Every structure is written in C-alpha cells, then in structure tokens.
Amino acid sequence: MTQTGHEPKPVLVFDSGIGGLTVLREARVLMPERGFIYVADDAGFPYGGWEEAPLRKRILDLFAELLATYEPEAVIVACNTAFTLAGTDLRHAFPDMRFIGTVPAIKPAAERTRSGLVSVLATPGTVKRAYTRDLIQSFAAKCHVRLVGSENLARMAEAYIRGEPVSDEAVLAEIAPCFVEKDGARTDIVVLACTHYPFLANVFRRLAPWPVDWLDPAEAIARQARRLVPLIEGAEHPQGFDFAVFTSGKPDFSTRRLMQGFGLDIADTSVKAV
C-alpha cells in the first residue's frame, strides 16, 4: 500500500507507561517516513489492578481527546491489558481510525513449542481477560498453557529501565511460576504478554532455572503496523513530531532522560480522561 504526497501524518503509540517503547523502537525501523507521538498514561499506571468498567471508560475517554488533538494516521495500542479490554470498543467508537492491537503471542508460541508446555507471563488484568482464554482455545488447545499474572513486574521493569536497582530475588519470585515440569517435559516458551517485560529479558534469561524462548511480540506488532500504514514514496521524516505525552503532565527526571535516549521530546501538555 503506497500513498502519495509529502505530509505524512504521525503514528500514535499508546501504553499505560513506558513499556510501549519496545514497540516504538521496532516501528521506527520499519516506518522511517513517519513521525511518532508516544502517549503514556502514567496517571493511570499500572493497569493490571484496575476494575474493567472504569478502566474501559478511562481508555475510551483518553482516546476521544487524543484523536481529536493529534489526528494520527494510525494508533498502536502497545498494551495487552488495554487492548484485550477495550480494543473492540475503540474500533466501534472510532471506526475511521486504524488500530493496531497488542495481544498475547499465544498462536506463535503454540506453533514453536516442542514440549507442549507454554507459559504466558502477563498482568493480572490480561490473565483474567476472556480474550486471552479465547486465544488459548483457538490456537493452543493442544498445549498445556500456564497463565502467570504478575502484580509487580511492570513496576519493576519501569524501575529497571530507569536505572533503579531491582533485586534478583524479587524478579525470580515473579517468573518462577512460569517454569513447569510435567511428564518428563519442561516449559520451553514463555510469552511476554506485557510490553514492559522485554526490558527485563536479559535478567529473566540469567535467572531462569533452564533456558526457554522468551517471546517478545514487539517486532510482529511493528510489522502489522507497517502493513496497515500507507508507505509514502519520497517523503522525508517530518519535523515537529517524535514527542511523548504523559497523562500526569509530570514525568520525573529519569523518565525524561529515558525519553531523550529514545529521541523523544517531552510535550508540555498533558491529556486527561474526563
């Protein structure tokens, strides 16, 4: 799909915090002619402990303002919890917008596993979502899938990527339930079903009781975005985009420094759910 002209609209990347940077990094490689707006709902972070109804309303309210303000070409919802909860509602509420969602990579895990033992490391919200159970039923019915809902890993990943200390014992306590031995077989794939978790992938590998494939969906999400976002021949990377918006309006110093490391300015404005 190719689009003509020289004024490419930006792509908006949305996450509850800074985990979506793992997706942004991959999307930039595949869409160099697009500017990006990164939106972190840090005022609502973490999403895992929210009740469904108020979180769904919050997400829909935020997007009503975001889409009116920035008029993006497409939106990458780089958050499993947000998309498995509100993806269908977003598409119904904003039918003219392209939404690229993030869901647990259960299908590719089921295709790759040799042992038949797969674990899904997610937030409590993603684990309890019917959407996740439906993915297992549709694509991994012949596998033994363990769902592991972590209350703390998203916060720990945010702290880690900001350079704050995170103890090995605390991380191991969160990932240990992923490792299953059954009838002589062992878990061989762990799905990272939260975009924050890849920040800790090297720590996971070091602490794991045996080697597994840690499945990071960021590249697949970026490829899907490239398929859906028109390629503009001859367009140069636009000026004025590549910035981050925080719903709190008050990112701390380490977060600002991290955003600069990803080539993102910090917008002076905030966005609030009504």
Rank of each mutant, 00 (worst) to 15 (best):
V245D: 04
V120T: 07
P72A: 11
L21N: 05
S270A: 15
A193Q: 07
E65C: 01
V203E: 13
A208H: 07
L117A: 04
A244E: 06
L215H: 04
R129P: 00
G48P: 12
P198T: 11
G87R: 05
P251V: 10
P54F: 08
W214R: 05
Q260D: 10
R223C: 01
A78D: 02
T126F: 06
L30Y: 00
R28V: 06
N202R: 14
D134G: 00
G48S: 11
G5V: 13
T2L: 14
S254D: 14
G116F: 10
Q3R: 15
L200V: 12
I221G: 03
F241C: 03
D268M: 09
K9N: 09
A64V: 05
F45Q: 04
R155F: 09
D242T: 07
P198V: 11
T247V: 04
T69M: 10
G101A: 05
I59W: 05
A140Q: 08
G163P: 07
R206K: 15
A173I: 01
V120R: 06
S248H: 06
E219N: 06
Y197Q: 13
E233F: 04
R206L: 09
A193C: 11
V11L: 14
P124T: 12
V274Y: 00
R133S: 13
D252F: 02
Y131H: 15
V118I: 15
R91E: 15
T88H: 13
I76L: 14
G249L: 07
A110P: 06
L200Y: 12
L153A: 08
R162P: 00
K182N: 01
P238F: 13
A208G: 09
R56L: 12
A173S: 14
P165K: 11
T113A: 08
A122T: 15
I59P: 01
E73S: 12
E73I: 05
A27G: 07
E33C: 02
Q3W: 09
V212T: 11
L60S: 02
N202P: 00
S16C: 06
H92Y: 06
M31I: 09
V171R: 08
W214K: 05
A218M: 04
V75C: 13
F45I: 06
A225D: 03
T195A: 08
A130Y: 01
D89M: 07
N80W: 01
A140E: 07
V274Q: 12
R256D: 00
G240H: 09
I18C: 02
A218D: 01
A235Y: 01
V245E: 06
A267P: 02
L30G: 11
H196C: 09
